[in-house]
Design a binder for these strands. Structure first.
Lengths: 192, 192
DNA sequence: GTTACTGTACCGTCTGGACGGTTGACCTAC
DNA sequence: GTAGGTCAACCGTCCAGACGGTACAGTAAC
């Protein structure tokens, strides 16, 4: 009898190491991420990890590249789901942050935060790939036909929620999420 | 002849050490902040530093307490400058972030970020004093008579700008600052 | 033979923290 | 007024542990 592997279709070692690193940062914080810990969590030896990622920096860079691709793709899909017309990008952002379940938003946020903080701590320049993506989002939001400043206000608000969660500053209750969503939606509908 | 000391009235050693720690984080990042580096920057020996702050954690805690007091006081003053009536707290926040010179906003932001990141990296629980202050701000913004969600949208947007700067994601040009200010002001004037 | 590892041993460096001085201002006793 | 003593405020050195990274011998699959 042969067992067919389903669901995670046998994640390769690199992916497992990347996932392990994220897991560790989320569970034990940035200082908890050591090469040895990541290797153990991924079920490989330290030597094996270093075979795939020649240095800690290389590991972090890979983590960040993956995150950047993920965010970028996520936004493209959000844009496609958002009806065309002025404010399309801004509405996609709003949806991205406030029209998904709280659990989903938190999960995305936490994953991003882990990679973000670990990379930033090691070397801020590692964030460059994400910076490029964010610059793209910003460009999209600023040129989608809304009165100037309105789109960026929405983007900044979403970023604020991101930060508030990363650092455990505050978290919106479901009703508050709806209220903020309504408020920002009104902003997006205001005429020039 | 006796010389009278003016301007900085001989900052005491503790203050100098605290300032030194901030300076180092801003210049060399969180990993650059070691007891030895902080001591050298403050012009004391490592032993001297440890005399005043019994551990690195104690140093960070003191740094954070100082920041929390500063932010809290800053907001109180902002509130007093803001005309009474609905939306007073939210308008104070808006002013706090967007009605000061860019240089001043950046300076405040960078100081806060340095303390923030250093403390968070060592132990997230160290942020508790700031969390308490932020909880207070949030309470003020949510109960100042605006339609639900409007005040929090403004607060989140300001927090987003903070984060964007910390991590070097984006920075608003002067015109963009004005535009965002105008947009959020409109939001605050919207009737229920 | 090559690729993809494992496992162990090891090195150099850095860091927080402990510890035993030393200095100098200030008080007190004679 | 000077000798003795106290105490906070430091200084400089030392150390154990951890971490990133290297080296290398071995192995199992293809």
């Amino acid at each position: 009898m042969s067992v067919v592997q389903i669901a995670p279709p046998a994640p390769d070692v690199r992916t497992r190491i990347l996932d392990a690193a994220e897991t560790i940062v989320r569970a034990r914080g940035v200082p908890g991420l050591t090469l040895e810990a990541a290797a153990r969590e991924a079920g490989v030896s330290k030597g094996g990890l270093l075979y795939h990622f020649g240095s800690k920096e290389a590991l972090l860079a890979a983590l960040l590249t993956r995150l950047a691709e993920f965010v970028s793709q996520d936004f493209v899909e959000g844009m496609e789901r958002s009806p065309p017309g002025p404010g399309r990008a801004a509405r996609a952002m709003l949806a991205w942050g406030l029209e998904v379940s709280e659990a989903e938003a938190n999960e995305r946020c936490d994953r991003a935060a882990a990679v973000f903080l670990a990379a930033f701590h090691h070397d801020p320049a590692l964030l460059d790939p994400i910076r490029a993506v964010v610059a793209g989002l910003r460009e999209a939001v600023m040129t989608d036909g809304l009165p100037p400043g309105h789109g960026m206000a929405v983007m900044a608000a979403m970023d604020g929620l991101f930060m508030a969660r990363i650092f455990g500053m505050y978290e919106l209750a479901p009703a508050e999420r709806r209220d903020m969503h309504a408020a920002l939606s009104r902003l997006l509908e205001l005429p020039t």
